[in-house]
Simulated assay, not measured.
Amino acid sequence: MTAPTDTPSATPSTPPDLDLAVLHHLRGDLEGAEAGYRAVLAASPDNATALNNLGFAAAQSGRFDEAVELYERSLAIEDGATARLNLGNVRAALGDLEGGIAELSRATELAPGDPTAYDNLGQLLMLQGRIAEAEAAWRHALAIEDGPRLRTALATAVAATGRLGEAAGLLHQALTLDPQFGAAWAQLGAVLLLRGDVASAGEALANAKRLDPDDPGPRRHLALALLSLGRTDEAVVEFGELVRLAPDDATSRVDLAVLHLSAGRAAAALTQLDRALEAGPDDDRARLHRAFALRELGRLAEADELLQAIADGDGEQADRARQALVDEAS
C-alpha cells in the first residue's frame, strides 16, 4: 500500500494554536506539531481535528496503536472522512486488512468525491485478492481524478484478471499523460513479458530502470527478458546489480549462479550460492546448484554428499539430485 496521501487538516474556524500546529506539521516538524496539538487538546479535549492530526503525527512516527486510539476518539466526536481514511490506513499497517477496508469503505461513503479513499481501498482489496472490487474502486478514483498513477494502479487489477491487452492500453495511456512515470514503464514491461512480446518488454523495462535505477523490480524483469532474447551477458550484469540492490534476494542470487555455471564460472557461482544459503539454508534449488558448482571445482566428495542429502529428502529438487547421482555412477 502506498503511504497515505492525506495531510493534516484544518477548517476555517480552527483556533490560531491549531493553525500553528498544522503549519509545523506541514513543514515536517513532527515534534512541534505534536506539542501544538496536545496544547490545543489540553484546552479543548473534544477537538476532533486536533485528535485526528495528532493521530496522523503518531502514525508518521510509527506509533500505530496510539494513532488508532486518537482516530477513534476523533471519530467518536465527529464521523469524518479524513479520520476514517487515516484509521483505515493504520489498521492496514497493523495487519488488519479487513478493518482497513471497512474504514476506507466508510470514508468513500462520507466523501464520495475524494479519490484518495477509493485509491487506498483499491490497494487493500488487491492485497486481499479481491481483484474485481479493487478494479471497481480504482475506476471510481479515476472518474474523479485522472492521472498516470491511478491508471497504472487500475492496470494492475486488469492484468491480474488476464486482460493483458486492456492493461497494456491503460499503461500506454498513463505514459501519454507522463512519459517519465517509471512505475507505468515497469508495469508495462511486466505485462508485455506475459504477452510474449519480449523485445518490447525489454525496451519498457530499460526505461523503468533508467527512471529508477535503484528499484530492483524492473531489473529482475529486465534480466529475464534479456535471457529470453539470448542476451545472456547483459542478463548477468542485471542480476549482478539486482543482488547488489537487494542483497537478501536469494532467488536472484541462485539465478545469477546458474548463469555463472553455464558460462563455466563455477567459483563465482559458488560465491553466490553460499550467500543465498546464508539467507535460506534449506533452499534446495540453491543446494542443488551448489553441488553442481562443487563438482565443477573438483570437490566431488562434498558434491556427492550434498546431492545425497537432497535426494534423501522430499523437496522439489530430490528427483534431479537422484538423477545427478545416477549419471555420475554410470
Rank of each mutant, 00 (worst) to 15 (best):
M1E: 12
T7V: 14
P8Q: 03
T14R: 04
D19N: 12
A21I: 09
V22A: 02
L26K: 13
G28L: 03
D29R: 07
E31Y: 10
G32N: 14
V40C: 00
V40F: 02
N47C: 09
A48F: 13
N52T: 15
G55W: 05
G55C: 05
G62F: 04
R63T: 04
E69V: 14
L70G: 00
L75H: 01
E78L: 05
A81I: 09
R84K: 10
L87Y: 00
N89K: 02
A93I: 00
L97V: 09
G99A: 01
S105T: 15
S105R: 15
A107I: 07
E109N: 05
E109M: 02
D114G: 00
D114E: 03
L124K: 01
Q128L: 13
E133T: 10
A136C: 06
W138R: 00
L142Q: 03
A143R: 04
I144K: 01
R149N: 02
T152V: 08
A153D: 15
G162I: 13
P179Q: 04
F181W: 14
W185A: 05
L188R: 05
A201Q: 12
A204K: 06
N207D: 13
R210P: 05
L211R: 07
D215V: 13
R231W: 09
A235Q: 07
G240Q: 10
L242A: 01
V243G: 01
R244E: 12
P247I: 11
A250T: 14
A250M: 11
A257D: 06
H260S: 08
S262Q: 15
G264E: 09
G264R: 11
G264L: 05
A268I: 07
A276N: 07
G280R: 14
D282A: 06
D283R: 08
A286I: 09
F292E: 05
L300W: 12
D304T: 12
D304G: 01
D304M: 10
L306C: 09
Q317G: 11
E328N: 06
